[in-house]
Design a protein around this nucleic acid. Structure first.
Lengths: 349, 349
DNA sequence: CCCTGGTGTGCAATCGTTTACGATGGTTCT
DNA sequence: AGAACCATCGTAAACGATTGCACACCAGGG
């Protein structure tokens, strides 16, 4: 049916070995035969059979990506970045929705591992032990999750949080709250501490409003909790929650930003669409996808200097043999995006 | 590295042929050897090498899906449905973002075709000719696009539009407009005619407000165009545009729904989050994904009765040989979801 | 006793590539 | 001139699974 390398070789008048080398190791074949092969290939519209290649090289040219929920607007941009990079590298992306099931992730990794060259785990909720086990099966790269033993990329709260907090300070806010996400979330914990530090540095009062599910409902509950405090501004775990929170505040007759300013996190597309626009901390989702594939591709080796990436740290843990594997953990800078949901403090208490 | 069929066969004390048949054609091997093979496989944690299998069977166990833009909230649910079905069938999904480039879709199909068993094209903007060419290369199934020569699944405007229009009528609206999407869009044309028909049937005045890009900007432009007319309610091509349109109307001091009612299309998640909630025509995205894979899987053959699907029509075109290939074109019912953006007519004019 | 038929199994070819190895011819060095 | 070397290319063996074919074995009928 499809044209094979043998057809190309025949048309070019060379052996299949030479034809193969014309693609794989061009420097090993003579200029004339190389050109004949290339011409024949173009002529026949040849494209190599990836299964055959995978069979012998042991690499499929496909990377797997596991996301917890495709409908969460955080991930598509990550996927786009990952796909762009994968295509540059001649690979494809096998995307899988883990479907809200933390305990299903490890089996999923097992299934996928057999047919991919490595897996990008997004916001994985797997235990550290499961992660280790998964890493034994196949190369892994983490997005939005840090592990001492695995390479990964995450959003650095800096400079987003400092600049958000300073912005609130300039607007006259002195009491700010944080509506957190799931308490198991590492990034939530990090944000919490950074917010606290920056607030105290700026001489502002900080209130932990609690942990909530990272959903619309969580945002609504958050709104109710906010009303029990005297804060004039809140930072919220993600835009989803922040939008629901604004909505809920309004339904209680509390105006945003007149009475309470709200800052979200992620800068999903809708944040700029609502009224008032949601001020938010933008995270470089696309670049995170790109970087995740990079990490997979060079298997944790030294990164090429080409990029805008900023490597914030590496694991120094020593393994049983006393070697010191250094796994890249890359933090990409976040950025505060001011919009209508933050304003000068006026009414509230 | 990984355990192969040979290992399993050796442990079970049979030949690889028997081991293979124990999986593929169990009825051909004796009960005792079958059990020994299965036990050995379980013991070794054997999983077949899909590349090797693909090489000989010519089927990779992977379906491709091409979407125009992953960040468009319409698609994730489709992908989820497609994935669920694919997994049921033992296949994986290779998802690709075509990246806003209609002219890039055909090359993309060519690239993908080599490594998948078929491709689901979502909202393809390819020309009919390109579609035909693509269909020559690999099995195809269309989502949100109908073609006379290809199987596909689309959202049936019924009963969504009739019930939306009746709802507006009950609210006292007599002049409604339609803010359309790209004029090349088939579904746009269909909606247009259905809206017109239902409106006239209900004795309402209908205004075509024009064609706009299916983006936030398109929605904004649509808002301005709406203000040049005297309609009291508009139906909008999709929720994205509808939300931006509401936003824009409001920035012009026009209240929704006090002065103008707005109905969107798709029921993306945010439509229920904004204030007022966006009334919208919900389309069964998840089921469309499921069905698209089904169409690919049974290669346009008769559908099994198991489902809730409603087959609206088949192509009767005859090909050169005079045969009459019947390609399933399946319309899934849409549904009107009333929310706050539609209300009794009051102020306008 | 031979032949037919069915059942269960193994041998070996095959899919399309990659790549180790060896063969060939030509060039350069001593 | 002979050796050593290099560039170039072909032969053939993999990779791991599937499957057509043939073979062995056993039952039963003539």
């Amino acid at each position: 049916m499809a044209t094979t390398l043998k057809d190309v070789a025949a048309l070019a008048g060379v052996s299949v070995a030479t034809a193969s080398r014309a693609f794989q190791r061009p420097e090993l074949v003579g200029a004339t035969s190389r050109e004949k092969v290339l011409a024949a290939a173009a002529d026949l519209g040849y494209s190599p059979n990836r299964s055959a290649r995978a069979l012998i090289t042991g690499r499929s040219g496909v990377y797997g990506v596991i996301v917890p929920d495709l409908e969460n607007p955080f991930f598509p941009a990550v996927l786009k970045g990952a796909q762009a990079r994968a295509h540059q590298l001649g690979s494809q992306l096998l995307i899988t929705d883990a479907g809200e099931a933390p305990e299903g992730e490890l089996p999923l990794v097992r299934t996928l591992a057999a047919q991919v060259d490595g897996i990008v785990l997004c916001s994985s909720r797997m235990t550290e032990d499961s992660l280790r086990e998964a890493a034994d099966i196949t190369p892994l790269s983490l997005v939005n999750r840090v592990s001492p033993v695995l390479p990964g990329v995450f959003a650095d709260p800096v400079p987003g949080i400092p600049s958000a907090v300073r912005h609130l300070h300039r607007m006259g806010h002195r009491r700010v709250g944080y509506v957190g996400g799931p308490s198991v979330s590492r990034s939530d914990a990090v944000r919490r501490t950074v917010i606290e530090r920056i607030c105290t540095e700026a001489g502002m009062e900080w209130t932990d409003i609690g942990s909530f599910p990272p959903t619309v409902d969580g945002g609504r509950s958050g709104a109710e909790a906010v009303l029990l405090t005297d804060v004039t501004a809140v930072l919220v775990y993600n835009d989803f929650m922040a939008l629901a929170l604004m909505e809920r505040l309004r339904s209680f007759g509390v105006d945003v930003p007149e009475e309470i300013s709200v800052v979200g996190w992620d800068d999903i597309e809708f944040s700029s669409l609502v009224t008032p626009g949601l001020s938010t901390v933008r995270v470089p989702r696309y670049d995170m996808g790109v970087t995740a594939i990079d990490l997979l591709h060079d298997g944790g080796r030294r990164r090429n200097g080409e990029s805008h990436l900023e490597c914030l740290g590496s694991s120094g843990d020593e393994d049983a043999q006393g070697r010191s594997p250094r796994h890249a953990r890359i933090g990409l800078p976040s950025q505060f995006v001011p919009r209508g949901s933050t304003a000068k403090v006026t009414a509230r208490e």
